[in-house]
Amino acid sequence: MDKSVIVCRCEEISYEEIEEVITQGGRTFDDIKRITRCGMGACQSKICSKLVAEVIHKQTELSMEQIYPPRFRMPISPVSLEALATDSQQFSTVKSVLDEIELTDGKVK
């Protein structure tokens, strides 16, 4: 097939770009995603993951069961920050940079 054909519609990534990463040693969907942005767009790889697996399969010695699906991410579908946020301003794990600075004898260490 023509190498300029788009595989990832969201980020407009072609076969050529995907094959290049495999040539460099990439073997998983996620390797390709990080370098090309394939699958990082609005659909979060729902359309392209199988197509990319087929490219990896064709270009490497890997069988389809050795090509893992992409790492799926939360949120499972997009959600607004406003909906995600709670009213709480209690932070247990999320900190600010200044929180981390400790003063000893009234001085920064």
């Binding site: 990082m40 920050l81 946020a85 794990t93 999320v94």
Partner: peptide
């Protein structure tokens, strides 16, 4: 990732930049 921390992070982001609240989170 956990929804607990994602929610706290959303709180922090809105607290810093309230105008961002309508933006959609596409991944964590």
């Amino acid at each position: 990732t956990t929804l607990n921390v994602m929610q706290e992070t959303a709180n922090m982001a809105i607290r810093y930049v309230p105008a961002i609240k309508k933006a959609k989170i596409v991944r964590a």
